[in-house]
Design a protein around this nucleic acid. Structure first.
Length: 412
RNA sequence: GGAGGGAUUCCCGAGCUGGCCAAAGGGGGCAGACUGUAAAUCUGCUGGCGAUGCCUUCGGAGGUUCGAAUCCUCCUCCCUCCA
């Protein structure tokens, strides 16, 4: 059912929020009008390939958009790409993706859905597997599908072109990926396809396939690529610049606080529901010095934790963050090292070794270097003597930098 | 099938007329200073060993040599060109 509390303009403004490009926008307006006229929701497609187990905020951006459209009364269709995942999307890749077996893919599916449904309403979401149609295709069908694409068009793409130029391999099966994704749109007769702007090519292929099959072409609604914690590269697991959906509140909060200031507004726009007018006002205040950027970032961090955990968790995480970084106190919950008599010599232990024992560093050498640099404290006191033998004391807290802690326990 | 090019420390990438190479430079990471936060900026560190030395590392296995990332042989993988 379609809720029509909003005007067309308001609805359009909501959909447009946090998008980089909508193509073509006029068609979106037409579709929205038609949906209102016929009281028939639009079919909104989001395809996900369960190629890994853990999701991060970057993956969630189109999911949040899907949720928004779902809340507007449109039909959310989540396509689990069990077949496309076996191919692997070459988009933006400088390497062929490893091919997954169907079992691995199905394995990932479970955790994927669990995470995605923390955002989407499961009762209102249609979940389909693209194996449902690809599994039934004959080789003839595949040949026919492949005839829709030319090599020249594929090589126009930045990713393939650069691989080609840099003498990196391009496997043939990668070429079929956009066609598969496009065919998904045919199969479900999508009105809108969501995705990052990097999906533009694939989404356009969907439009073309729909047109050749006599269907009304879908509209692409693309969000910008979320920049990761480093403020430079796109958020990705392999770069380690991500905030994972499954991370504990304190981690999420802290990681959010670590994003460069310039990224804040992007995060606000893409991840929170705070109205654009308020965001603009906030930006204004930061600019003229009325609002401290750090305060704004705190708010962002609270919003994010609230979204994936709860409001209470957000407050706890904030309190913890204050304790550690503002007051230089130790966190609530820190790991413990247990020392036995064997670790001690005359009741003492070499500090570098203790750090290794506590799992705070990987080697004596690393511990040594940190001690030399004044990065190591015991009970808050800096120890910079490399050869320091510490008279072990139960309950003492050893600390490296601002965020690595361990509490010492003595075993009798 | 034929001819060439390549594989280096977490990553990219020098070195490859044999010793001065635990191996330049950059990235990333970590620490310090400063601060407004795990922002920004600047500085330092970044194979292991209780360590002015020793040990393991430059795709794999052998060999030459007092000495090999560097030279030779074979093998594995990758790329390019021709067909």
């Amino acid at each position: 059912m379609l809720t029509q509390v909003l005007s067309l303009e308001e609805e359009l403004a909501l959909i447009t929020r946090g998008t980089e490009e909508i193509f073509p926008e006029e068609e979106l307006v037409e579709k929205l009008k038609k949906a209102r006229r016929n009281k028939k929701p639009l079919k909104v497609k989001l395809g996900v390939d369960p190629t890994g187990a853990d999701l991060h905020l970057g993956h969630l951006i189109p999911v949040l958009k899907l949720k928004q459209l779902q809340d507007l009364g449109h039909e959310a269709i989540l396509i689990i790409g069990d077949y496309t995942a076996m191919v692997g999307d070459p988009t933006g890749r400088n390497k062929t993706r490893p091919q997954l077996t169907h079992e691995q893919v199905m394995e990932n599916c479970r955790t994927y859905q669990e995470q995605v449904f923390r955002i989407l309403d499961p009762k209102k979401t249609r979940v389909v597997y693209n194996g449902d149609w690809f599994g039934k295709m004959s080789f003839q069908d595949v040949i026919k599908l492949m005839s829709q694409m030319t090599l020249a068009r594929m090589l126009e793409r930045e990713d393939f072109a650069s691989r080609f130029q840099n003498q990196l391999p391009i496997s043939l099966h990668e070429m079929i990926y956009p066609l598969m994704q496009g065919y998904d749109s045919v199969a479900i007769e999508a009105d809108i396809e969501l995705g990052g702007i990097d999906q533009k090519f694939n989404i356009l292929v969907g439009r073309e396939l729909q047109r050749t099959m006599g269907l009304e072409p879908q509209v692409g609604v693309c969000n910008p690529i979320l920049i990761g914690l480093d403020g430079k590269e796109k958020m990705s697991k392999s770069l380690g610049n991500y905030i994972g959906i499954n991370e504990p509140p304190y981690e999420m909060y802290g990681k959010t606080m670590s994003i460069p200031d310039e990224l804040m507004m992007m995060y606000f726009e893409l991840i929170t529901d705070i109205p654009m007018a308020e965001l603009q006002a906030m930006e204004q205040k930061i600019q003229n010095g009325e609002l401290h950027p750090m305060e704004a970032k705190r708010m962002l961090a609270r919003e994010i934790v609230t979204r994936f955990h709860s409001a209470e968790a957000a407050l706890d995480a904030e309190a913890e963050f204050n304790r550690v970084f503002k007051e230089n106190q130790i966190p609530d919950d820190i790991p413990e090292v247990t020392l036995t008599q064997e670790d001690l010599e005359d009741g003492k232990i070499w500090l570098a070794r203790l750090l290794v024992k506590a799992g705070l560093v990987k080697s004596n050498g690393e511990g040594r270097r940190l001690i030399q640099q004044g990065g190591v404290r015991i009970n808050g006191e800096v120890i910079d003597d490399v050869d320091f033998d510490w008279p072990a004391e139960s309950g003492a807290v050893i600390q490296i930098g601002k965020r690595r802690f361990a509490r010492v326990r003595m075993q009798e």
